[in-house]
Nucleic acid binder design. Sequence first.
RNA 1: GCGCCAUUGGUGAAGUGGUUAACACGCUAGUUUGUGGCACUAGUAUGCAAGAGUUCGAUUCUCUUAUGACGCC
Length: 375
Amino acid sequence: MKVKFHIEKEDTKTKARLGSLETNHGTVETPMFMPVGTRAAIKGLTPDQVKECGSGIVLANTYHLWLRPGEDIVDKCGGLHQFMNYEGPILTDSGGYQVFSLAKKKEKDITEEGVHFKSHIDGQELMLTPEKSIEIQNKLDSDIAMSFDECPPASATHEYLKNSLERTLRWAERGKKAHKNENQSLFGIVQGGPYEDLRRYSAEETVKLGFDGFAIGGVANDDESKEDMYHAIDYSIPYLPKDKVRYLMGVGEPMDILEGVERGVDIFDCVLPTRIARHGQAFTKHGKINFNNAKYKEDLGPVEEGCDCYCCKNFQRAYIRHLITVGESLGGTLLSIHNIRFLIREVEEIRKAIKEDRFIEYKEDFIKHYQQKGE
RNA sequence: GCGCCAUUGGUGAAGUGGUUAACACGCUAGUUUGUGGCACUAGUAUGCAAGAGUUCGAUUCUCUUAUGACGCC
């Protein structure tokens, strides 16, 4: 079955909405944050630990699983759910983002047919096309597949973005035609950088093609400003159907999730919670803290006061700081658990706030605390 | 006791009679948004064992002292 999205409540003061997304592997409440497991693993965490964080959907990546171990092996193992032993819903990214970061600044590698690039593993010359990406995702058997799109840099010109999004539309159509897995949903992706006319055009045309959900792509690239990112959302959302789920790709930071929800986004994904964890940093309601900092050497408190995660319930900051400074991977694991739980706790609170019709108050309160950095 | 060599930051060390004493680690901070996992960026010796001398100028040359290694008696 295809995913089904239901709106349970719309916020009266903003475009925020409370909903649920029904999939073959369970129903997830929205707004929701999705942890990223690029190579069929949330780095450093077991599926049980991921689940304990309250996760709904998790991500896996087509590009990475195509190169290793190969979609046929995943298929032989019984599909992605069985392969990685995750029973909840899984969304696969198309590989577009990865392939474009490999082909970056070489326009000749980007053709109508697809994208030429060299494998980051052995340098082998490869080509990824919309059909190939969808074919791989069909075999991986995720619940949600993403269209193969071009993800242009934030610095791209209006003209470049226009041509690019038109090609992305043609690719979306080709991908849709190539899509054969009846149990898998397919999402379209809106591009167009920070430009109102392009976002509108891209959204309207993508919607016409007909997808099971819609994503806003091409945001938070390079050093795109927050303003541009919020504009990209604002200019895309009005043209997306209300009854389909909306996914803001690659975003993330605690503040951005609030801004996204306020603008009508339902689901988010981001590598940040796990990446910064491995580098020793944690989200807290007072801002981001860095366990490489000497001030945590003798700190006996939990990573975050009041947090209900496994890390905060069982370990002191001094221990986390120790693990990080000596390079024990458990440090990254524990902070990943905390950071994922932090973002999921945030969306849980957001859902509660929308339900109680106080989303904007919640947001303001969150910002007030988040801006006083330190602790 | 004599001879010979050494002594550079928290550590291992490079180096030169003349503007900012290399590099590495460590340390201190910062960055990270559809992950080319375990990275990147920046800062970190007003001083080259101590003192005196030669010189326009010495960490670099000379002398004395201290400490250490090696060799000889």
